[in-house]
Design a protein around this nucleic acid. Structure first.
Length: 881
RNA sequence: GGGAGUAUAGCUCAGUUGGGAGAGCGCCUGCCUUACAAGCAGGAUGUCAUAGGUUCAAGUCCUGUUAUUCCCACCA
């Protein structure tokens, strides 16, 4: 197989198509294998893929590919669009552009149109994710609105209703006046805004009582004035009634411990219809709840002569009226939090509405228990804390939404107001038998159905082999912001419906910011489309860039400059493969050896391994172990870095260079050694490529196919195993010394400005026989650019430059180039360095505390180092004299 | 108001049981050496924010401070 000279990203589509065609992504219940299930969060299907998706997707794909290679029946269960609200917004807009509106078509027809649109464009995000190399089992994907999930949603609703865990009631909900719907607490964004604190007073008996408010318009809905029960200033007023002048309404002065006597005047006006706290106080004191707002945010008939005004207009007029009544005191600026709808930015009005709620106290308990017992784990403890904190302070979940697009609530009303809840439309009222029934107009919060994803996609409520095999799953990878809206709800829904948590590991990743550290967003226009990056660099490069050199749980910034190093690394690996393929053509025998046979070949007992062969096998062995461990610990950045570093720094820079003399040898007797080198090159690279495959799936597939022809895909090849028989610690030390020698000679060459093309003679004086310096003479000579490498038994020639390394002294006869004075100062520097090192170690070894308490292995290691330095120092001193 | 993260080389960031400060980019020098100039070799660069504490030993653990980011929250 011929590879082009530079890394070729253009084959990604072709490779992906082949994977799909071969069905490598599919997972089915298989009793001979262990299941592994990973779940993916729901990107909004109608939106563009963004960088956050790319990172998240890369992480999940890495985990799932490793598991597949490790022999698990690994299912990546994809979620897609659950964001019904956003979908509706987008679809409605798109249809409106064609002149089609809800009003013009009516509900049924309009929904039909929306379905059409959804079918037509709904796969956008899926296709985008495929570009990234996402190996989810897309066959398992079902959209939010499909039949299977609808069935599950209805089943859960009815079940919870019958169990008393869903109720309907008048509560203050977050109302978006623009979207005309209620939204959940999690969808409200609080932002500090500069506002005003207005001070007013109401007449009480003969006097007045003063208070402050940030929202004067809500005075229209006031039904009480509250003070603290132990506040002596107002004790006499409690029980009396004040006058709300705007409405000429008498309202009681009540005492409630909610009021902070130290804040402001210690008096609070109570508006149960428009403030959550006031609502609760109203509950305690049996106060009437007055709603003064229409759904569009204007004042309704309860606002008297203010009816029809917007809240802003009403506010101005009320201040005017209060002023003219002499009841206005003052205005002072105040910065306070204002809630806004996260999708449209409209200020949220707390509004009284009949809504459906899920009672959370009972559902929250087992979800909390799952975490505190350690069954549910987070990749970082701090994310677990967020989860716990939310559950500790759980409030009932408002699940009804006033939208057209979504699962309609299966509640049916008869004219007498009786409620019948059942999955299929009932023919008559369960209470009175009336056949005149109408279904609730509201639909369910999109997260209500999303929460069922882990099991509804596997067939629940039916009993299916998939559900039995793949549930409970293993890992959920998602972003921090979705812990409340999705993670927690999946957990308690799973416990409620399946009796077990849907996954045991939650992997929270950071978000990708722009180069200034800002969140990428549409409004800022600073988003970077991953597809643009892919078309320029390829998915592998993007994935490698996103994953390497980062702690994935931390936020990361996107820099275009970071793409080049990632691409360069891949190009390096690409070319290493080319080199190996080129040199292998010198012999036909070993090119027939296949992936698994290579390992057997290099590790058989009679293998004629050179020191450098043992060293690289041993290093590879360590890398296999480290990388596997790091991935298990979800430390993907470090795992990736270790693979890349090994391939570039150890394999390419040293091993490949070391064996070149063997490969190029024309000597027939060198043939076995040559073949061994070729096979080890192949084995080591093949193994490293496998380790890298989860991160950069496409290039590694190409290289895998080029390096062997027995297996048809790297995706299903076996994950490398650490093999104790291939540990060679002695060879590792030898080669480290050899590297020291090479580096030493190279440094001297640079310093003396010896042209790279000019070869120089090298004389080695080993401290003992059989060190790598003598056994790997050929490699040393090649790496250091030597014309000859001789072992020195006699005294060194006069004027030769000496390089002291552990285990040997190297002499470079360079008479014409040597400046004796400079040479002395170089050696003196080296002497000083060694003396410093020895002094540092002596400091430790003479410290009684250290000797008494430090681990023995550490003490021995320090002693060994000292010994080494002392020997080197002696040689340096010898040279100086 | 409560909680959490971050602070390490000029830049962007790694550094997970505490044991000789790292990478990439950039910079300097020399090389188109028969896998790779998207490359190779050599080199310079740090009061690990700050003040204390624990320890034989702290970038790493504890406490305070400063800067910065994020999440949560009903304070009129």
């Amino acid at each position: 197989m011929e590879l082009p000279k530079t890394y070729d990203k253009s084959r990604e589509d072709e490779i992906y198509s082949r994977w799909i065609e071969k069905g490598y992504f599919r997972a089915t219940p298989n009793p001979d294998k262990k299941p592994y299930t990973i779940m993916m969060p729901p990107p909004n299907i109608t939106n563009q893929l963004h960088m956050g998706h790319a990172l998240n997707n890369a992480i999940q794909d890495i985990l799932i590919r490793v598991k597949r290679m490790q022999g698990y029946e690994a299912l990546w269960l994809p979620g897609t669009d659950h964001a019904a609200i956003a979908t509706e917004t987008v679809v409605v807009k798109a249809l409106a552009a064609e002149g089609i509106t809800k009003e013009s078509l009516g509900r049924e027809k309009f929904l039909e149109k929306m379905w059409e649109w959804y079918d037509k464009y709904g796969n956008t995000i899926v296709n985008q994710l495929k570009k990234l190399g996402s190996s989810a089992d897309w066959d398992k994907l079902r959209f939010t609105m499909d039949e299977g999930l609808s069935k599950a949603v209805l089943e859960v609703f009815v079940r919870l209703y019958e169990g008393g865990k869903i109720y309907k009631g008048e509560r203050l909900i977050n109302w978006c006046t623009k979207c005309q719907t209620s939204i959940s607490d999690a969808e409200v964004e609080h932002e500090d805004k500069e506002g005003n604190l207005y001070h007013f007073k109401y007449p009480v008996g003969d006097g007045f009582i003063s208070f402050a408010t940030t929202r004067p318009e809500t005075m229209l809905g006031d039904t009480a004035i509250a003070v603290h029960p132990e506040d002596a200033r107002y004790a006499a007023l409690v029980g009396k009634s004040a006058t709300l002048p705007l409405m000429n309404r008498e309202i009681p002065v009540i005492a409630d411990s909610y009021v902070d006597p130290a804040f402001g005047t210690g008096v609070v006006k109570i508006t149960p219809g428009h403030d959550p706290n006031d609502f609760e106080i109203g509950e305690r004191h049996g106060l009437p709840r007055i709603n003064i707002l229409n759904d569009d945010g204007t004042i309704n008939e309860n606002g008297g002569h203010y009816q029809g005004l917007t809240t802003a207009e009403a506010r101005t007029k009320i201040i005017e009226e209060m002023t003219s009544l002499g009841l206005y005191i003052k205005t002072e600026p105040l910065s306070h939090a204002v809630g806004e709808h996260d999708r449209c930015g409209t200020v949220i009005e707390p509004l009284l509405k009949e809504q459906w709620f899920v009672k959370m106290d009972e559902l929250a308990k087992p979800a909390l228990e799952a975490y505190t017992s350690g069954k549910l784990k987070f990749n970082r403890e701090r994310f677990g804390k967020i989860y716990k904190h939310w559950l500790d302070n759980i409030r009932d979940w408002c699940i009804s939404r006033q939208l057209w697009w979504g699962h309609r609530i299966p509640a049916y009303y008869c004219p007498d107001g009786h409620i019948t809840v059942q999955a299929t439309a009932p023919s008559k009222c369960a209470t009175c038998g009336s056949t005149n029934l109408t279904q609730d107009e509201d639909v369910l919060d999109t997260w209500f159905s999303s929460a069922l994803w882990p099991f509804s996609t596997l067939g629940w409520p039916d009993k299916t082999p998939e559900l039995d095999y793949f549930y409970p799953g293993n890992t959920l990878v998602t972003a921090r912001e979705i812990i409340f809206t999705w993670v927690i709800r999946m957990v308690f829904s799973g416990i409620e419906c399946m009796g077990d948590i849907p996954f045991t590991d939650v992997f929270i990743n950071g978000i990708v910011r722009d180069d200034q550290g800002r969140k990428m967003s549409k409004s800022l226009g600073n988003g970077i489309d991953p597809l643009d990056i892919i078309s320029e660099y390829g998915a592998d490069v993007l994935r490698l860039m996103l994953v390497s050199g980062n702690a994935i749980d931390n936020d990361t910034r996107f820099y275009y400059e970071r793409l080049d190093p990632a691409r360069n690394s891949l190009n390096k690996i690409w070319n290493a493969t080319r080199f190996i393929l080129m040199t292998s053509t010198t012999s036909g025998e070993q090119s027939r050896l296949q992936a698994d046979e290579l390992l057997a070949y290099v590790s058989r007992p009679d293998a004629q391994l050179e020191t450098e062969d043992k060293w690289i096998l041993s290093s590879l062995n360590t890398v296999v172990k480290d990388v596997t461990e790091k991935i298990e610990a979800h430390e993907l950045g470090m795992a990736t870095q270790k693979i890349i570093d090994f391939i570039k720094d150890e394999f390419c820079d040293w091993y490949v260079e070391m064996v070149k003399p063997r490969l190029y040898s024309k000597d027939e007797t060198a043939r076995p050694s040559q073949e061994m080198a070729q096979n080890i090159l192949r084995h080591v690279l093949l193994t490293a490529v496998k380790l890298l495959h989860p991160v950069t799936p496409f290039i590694t597939e190409d290289l895998f196919l080029a390096l062997q022809n027995k297996e048809e895909t790297i995706m299903l090849s076996a994950w490398p195993q650490h093999n104790p028989a291939l540990d060679f610690p002695h060879a590792e030390r030898e080669i480290e010394n050899l590297k020291e020698a090479v580096r030493g000679v190279r440094a001297v060459r640079t310093e003396k400005q010896v042209p790279p093309a000019k070869k120089i003679a090298i004389l080695i004086q080993p401290d003992a026989a059989n060190t790598a310096i003598t056994t790997a003479k050929e490699a040393l000579g090649f790496l250091a650019g030597a014309s000859s490498v001789e072992t020195l038994t006699d005294v060194p020639p006069a004027g030769a430059i000496s390089v002291v390394i552990p285990g040997a002294t190297i002499y470079l006869p360079m008479d014409s180039l040597v400046d004796a004075e400079k040479e002395k100062s170089r050696l003196a520097k080296e002497k000083a360095r060694l003396e410093q090192e020895i002094a540092r170690i002596d400091g430790k070894l003479s410290n009684q505390g250290f000797m008494a308490k430090a681990p023995e292995a550490l003490v021995n290691a320090e002693r060994e180092k000292r010994e080494n330095f002392v020997q080197m120092l002696a040689k340096v001193v010898g040279e100086l004299e």
